[in-house]
Design a protein around this nucleic acid. Structure first.
Length: 783
DNA sequence: TAACCCATCTTTTTT
DNA sequence: AGATGGGTTA
């Protein structure tokens, strides 16, 4: 057992270190503004500290104040603090807020950034130690997949049967877990390419080295290698970093964790801030376990819980806390608020007939609020999956309601931007094969697949990049005259542009490249609707280059910072996924689509069982806790998924909300909701006859939850996943179906069909006309 | 080489 | 439904 202190509601203990420290000098006002727990988190500067910061408890404030405190007390210089975040946005915001506290000296914080940007910085300094040149290129996902495709084909494997995307997922997974090829456990690649996955991983890494390139995963992996194989280098960083801080610690994957641990071995002054209840990125390698094992890895760690919530009303907090209490794998925090909120409203739960009505009803609510003087900027619609956004967009367009979609394809991922960047890359980094391949025939120059293959063969046989192969081949007779001319012209152009690199302004050069290559013209000729937008984006790209010193500086930046501020100042409702809502807050939050299968998402359940369910529940928790004043949850009885209508069962998460903090809104519209008997054209169903939410509160699941809650007990722990899944099905279905496999049934909408499978009250029916669908038994009748 | 047709897939997203 | 990608055809 390690000596760790778990401090739940501390104040400076009389005579304690903090109290003495405080007594010694006047309390700086930035510290005085903190509550006791926050203050402890700020003032416990030395040794390992884990801050468990619930939603809305001032996490960022603690981090920024802690840094300010380290600087103000002279414990460290700005350049001696390592502060890591996950996103550029978070890093920017942190820099900004520290700047507010300490002024311009924040500029000296050279080591505040994302895991990746700091990883690159370190790697560039020591690149040759891991077999790279310091000018290495960083490949994005797209390049990565194209390269893997080549590797798969080079191995003579059928790329159709074993898609590069799948291999990429596999390799990414390994890299997330910090595994180089030789560390991959045998059999871990599954049946991919008949067990050749690791071989492909090796081949891929070799190709990367030849190209002098790294993918995102390598940035950390190569750091690990560097630190392990060169203790002197690691030691240098131990000396450099006096204090380390980590934001969103619950999102770290194993590689990031190992990286942190290596660095923290030096001075052991590491402070991680996170919330296990907000871990929603398990599917991309985040390990909540990193939080759970912190005390083991750092004996003597101080654990501080921030549970005082400053964001939400007591009803919202009550609803969210009760929901998340259904999770077993958590450290457990109880959020509370001291806000005196007499006008606090309960969380509303409403239903609708289908997604269109859902959008219509939410649109009305938004307009109501707007009429009452609320700003659209203070409202958000948070969806589980992005396809849900469409019905809202459609509706808001007809209403003329301003909205903004957050997320979606990012600026630097657009085709025209990537093409333009590829041109710049070939100019700046002549051996960038992937970039060259991308644009060699864009616009069309008559250099087709055959010619490119020829370049590859030539290049591979001689071990030279294809750009160089192109240079050499145009001197020979091996290429058809027409192609040869085209290629020679292109190579000459690149040579010409390269010559201008550094002699004229890089933005000007960029324009010249796009014009002379015919790329701009290609879009000008394009008659499709989005061509003008693409030209606009290209202009925007060049405008944004202006902020950089040089072409190389710009390319370095965009490889890592694939986001762009779209600071729209217009008043608009935000529409985004629950994932991208993490860290944000709004007065009013709408949470549509709380239906089994969508939320929790069926795939999360299928692929990850209980862990998947718990992650979905955390997502629900994140959703509710985004709301400051009003949260309203919606459920649609019918939804069109992949083009076909599906009837839905309300999400089990609805069952898990506490009645005390929830208002079930009776559907009174005449569009045909739940309890409008017989209006819907789906014919009789149990949904038509009774208010499901009245039923909801008497389901076994709900009662069990209430009982557990009352007893103060966590739901009984189950170690057997199968059993738990069985329980979940029972929970979601309620009663057993009295249909039998093979039985012929009739559905109001889909017609006749035969039952293929039964799962609780969900039937898989092969309809004669409509195909095979999953339906709830109450929607069909015996024939 | 470009147009066209068919099969396939469809959660969440950062770097 | 709708986008995407690959293979086939003119």
């Amino acid at each position: 057992m390690t000596a760790s202190s778990d401090i739940t509601a501390p104040g400076p203990r009389p005579g304690g270190i903090a109290a003495r420290a405080l007594g010694a000098k006047p309390i700086p006002d930035y510290v005085a503004r903190l509550n006791p727990e926050q203050r402890l988190a700020v003032e416990t500067t030395d040794g390992p500290v884990l801050v468990l910061a619930g939603a809305g408890t001032g996490k960022t404030r603690v981090l920024t104040t802690r840094i300010a405190h380290l600087l103000a007390t002279g414990k460290a210089h700005p350049s001696q603090i390592l502060a890591v975040t996950f996103t550029n946005k978070a890093a920017r915001e942190m820099r900004h807020r520290i700047g507010d506290l300490i002024g311009p000296s924040v500029e000296g914080m050279n080591w505040l950034g994302t895991f990746h940007s700091i990883g690159v910085k370190i790697l560039r300094r020591h690149a040759e130690l891991v077999g790279l040149k310091s000018s290495f290129t960083i490949l994005d996902t797209d390049d990565q997949i194209r390269l893997m495709k080549q590797v798969i084909q080079a191995e003579g494997i059928d790329e159709k049967r074993w898609p590069a995307k799948q291999l990429a997922a596999l390799i990414d997974g390994w890299k997330n877990r910090g595994l180089v090829p030789k560390d991959v456990p045998p059999g871990d690649g599954g049946s991919f390419a008949n067990g050749k996955a690791v071989k492909l991983y090796i081949a891929y890494q070799e190709r990367l080295k030849v190209l002098n390139a790294c993918d995102f995963g390598d940035l950390l992996l190569e750091n690990l290698r560097l630190f392990r194989e060169h203790p002197d280098v690691l030691k240098e960083y131990h000396q450099r970093f006096h204090y380390m801080l980590v934001d969103e610690y619950q999102d770290t994957n194993v590689a990031q964790y190992l990286w942190l641990r290596l660095l923290a071995q030096g001075r052991r002054n590491i402070c991680c801030v996170g919330d296990d209840d907000q871990s929603i990125y398990g599917w991309r390698g985040a390990e909540v376990d990193n939080i759970l094992r912190f005390e083991k890895d750092f004996p003597g760690a101080v654990v501080i819980r921030l549970e005082r919530n400053y964001r939400s009303t007591s009803h919202i907090l009550g609803a969210a806390s009760h929901l998340i209490a259904h999770n077993q794998g958590r450290l457990g925090k109880t959020l509370f608020t001291e806000a005196n909120d007499p006008d606090s409203v309960k969380v509303q739960v409403s239903s609708s007939w289908d997604s269109e009505e859902e959008a219509r009803a939410i649109g009305e609510k938004i307009e109501d609020l707007q009429r009452q003087g609320h700003r659209l900027n203070d409202m958000a619609i948070l969806v589980r999956a992005s396809f849900q956004m469409r019905s809202f967009e459609d509706r808001f367009i007809t209403l003329g309601l301003n909205y903004r979609v957050i997320g979606g394809p990012r600026f630097y991922e657009r085709q025209e931007i990537r093409d333009a960047l590829a041109y710049f890359r070939v100019v700046a980094q002549p051996a960038d094969d992937l970039a060259f391949e991308r644009i060699v025939n864009t616009p069309r120059r008559g250099i087709g697949d055959t010619s490119i293959k020829l370049l590859y063969d030539y290049g591979r046989s001689r071990g030279i990049p294809i750009t160089q192969a192109a240079e050499e081949l145009v001197q020979t007779e091996e290429v058809k005259a027409k192609t040869r001319t085209a290629l020679r012209d292109l190579m000459a152009s690149f040579e010409r542009w390269r010559g201008k690199l550094g002699t004229i302004k890089h933005t000007e050069l960029a324009e010249i490249i796009l014009d002379e290559s015919g790329y701009t013209e290609m879009w000008q000729q394009d008659r499709s609707a989005d061509a003008p937008g693409r030209l606009e984006n290209l202009k925007e790209l060049i405008r944004s280059m202006d902020e950089f010193e040089s072409m190389e500086g710009f390319l370095e930046h965009i490889a890592l910072v694939m986001d762009k501020d779209n600071a729209e100042n217009q008043d608009a409702v935000s529409i985004m996924t629950l994932h991208s809502a993490k860290g944000l807050e709004f007065e009013t939050v709408f949470l549509p689509g709380w239906e089994e299968g969508l939320f929790p998402h069926q795939r999360a359940l299928d692929e990850s069982g209980r862990a998947g369910l718990e992650e979905e529940r955390r997502l629900a928790y994140v959703g509710i806790t985004r709301a400051k004043k009003r949260a309203s949850i919606w459920f649609a009885s019918n939804r069109r998924i992949h083009g076909l209508w599906q009837s839905n069962v309300p999400s089990r998460f609805l069952d898990e909300l506490p009645e005390k903090h929830v208002d079930v809104v009776e559907q009174t519209s005449n569009y045909g909701g739940y309890n409008v008997g017989g209006v819907g054209n789906y014919g009789a169903s149990r949904f038509d006859r009774a208010d499901p939410f009245q039923n909801t509160y008497s389901t076994p699941g709900w009662q069990r939850a209430q009982a557990n809650r009352a007893a103060g007990a966590k739901p009984a722990a189950k170690s057997n996943t199968r059993l738990i899944e069985g329980e979940l099905i029972a929970k979601s279905t309620g009663s057993k179906s009295d249909y039998a496999i093979g039985e012929r049934v009739f559905h109001q909408k889909f017609g006749y069909g035969h039952i293929e499978d039964i799962e609780g009250n969900k039937l898989t029916v092969a309809f004669e006309k409509a195909g095979t669908k999953k339906v709830v038994d109450s929607f069909v009748s015996k024939n």
